[in-house]
Design a binder for these strands. Structure first.
Lengths: 101, 101
DNA sequence: AAGTGTTTTGACTATTCGTGTCAAAAATAT
DNA sequence: ATATTTTTGACACGAATAGTCAAAACACTT
């Protein structure tokens, strides 16, 4: 179940790059990147896009990891988490079908 | 596809209550309630709980409406919205199965 | 049309939260 | 032991959120 942090940590370690290097590319302090990799901080959308570019992986895949992480975070501690996600899905599907018209 | 705003507006109008009355119970200005009912503002969790109590409906049902609204809002404009919701679902299911142990 | 009650709007304020820096401590590798 | 890298936590700042207030718009009745 790949969350963003684990994914980019693996990629970075495979290439044996220090946090410093990747953080520089993202133009943030390495401390933040460290926290992102360990799930203590959320990345911004921009950072995700840059990370996909940096590691040359599919942007939409990384965006899915990132967005789903945020969603999980949002429903955390809620009894009705699962139900809410399912209802949200239906709402999105409904909106789509409407906008298509 | 009931979102929170529509739901509580219906309930309030059925009982022919002015915004003022319900807002007083929630301890907020009626302006906010007006905006919540029309989806211009998000309710807080506390307000949702109080609304369920006030209208004597199942708290968890209203929480689902509210939470799913927030989720939809969060994925709005994202190409991968649906996919992210599905992945989030799996992540939540996985967490559950893990915590049960 | 005037008058009353209700709802909506928008400008403004306060508080909370997100995003970041920095420097020191802890861990890892040489 | 020293270098390098990573983690931690205190802090700053800007943006987003949650709210008030008063006026405008709307809907009824009479």
């Amino acid at each position: 179940m790949d969350n963003l942090g684990e994914t980019i940590r693996k990629l970075r370690e495979e290439k044996e790059l220090p946090l410093r290097t990747v953080a520089a590319f993202l133009d943030i302090d390495q401390a933040i990147l460290s926290k992102i990799e360990r799930g203590q901080r959320n990345a911004t959308r921009e950072q995700v896009v840059k990370l996909a570019e940096y590691f040359k992986i599919k942007e939409s895949d990384l965006l899915v990891s990132w967005l789903s992480d945020k969603l999980v975070y949002e429903v955390a501690d809620e009894q009705v988490a699962l139900k809410a996600l399912q209802v949200a899905e239906e709402k999105v599907k409904y909106q789509k079908s409407k906008s298509k018209k």
